[in-house]
């Protein structure tokens, strides 16, 4: 067989092997394996990650021959902004309250759009504030601080 590397499979294989490796190491460090009759807390992780490592090797090896399948471009900017928006929501909701964190989350996420239209973004923030207020605070009564001074 000719060597025709498949980037997707190779990456996936390495990822599974690395994940399994780290988990197996942690497992042997801290969890007793036990016996088949009286399995310790490390028995099932050992089996699972052992199998996963083997599968990772299989994917890696077969990936050397089944290519080429390139990994597409990674949309770092879009991904970063969306994940940042969520993270900011999580960081601020308890300290600054739901109104501020909602506005921040939508504001950051909206930057991912190619053309940033302030009017649309602010309109959306106002609309979502009203909708989420009615839905979550007034109607469902979820326990969440509303304003920075609510707690």
């Amino acid at each position: 067989m000719r060597l025709r590397p498949d980037a997707q499979d190779i990456f996936a294989g390495v990822m599974f092997i690395a994940f399994a490796g780290v988990m197996l190491y942690l497992n042997f460090e801290s969890h007793p394996i036990g016996t088949a009759r009286r399995m310790g807390s490390g028995y099932m992780p050992m089996l699972t990650f052992g199998i996963l490592a083997a599968l990772g090797v299989a994917i890696l090896v077969s990936g050397l021959f089944t290519g080429p399948e390139p990994i597409g471009r990674f949309a770092w900017r879009d991904m970063g902004l969306i994940l940042l928006a969520l993270t900011v929501y999580g960081l601020t909701v308890e300290r600054l309250g739901f109104v501020v964190s909602l506005a921040l989350c939508i504001g950051i996420a909206s930057v991912a759009e190619k053309v940033w239209k302030p009017l649309r973004v602010f309109g959306l923030i106002a609309f979502m504030l009203a909708l989420c207020w009615v839905l979550f605070i007034w109607y469902l009564d979820i326990r969440i601080p509303v304003f920075p001074w609510s707690r």
Partner: peptide, 8 residues
Amino acid sequence: PAILIFCA
């Protein structure tokens, strides 16, 4: 952004 905030 609406989906995102609902998820959050």
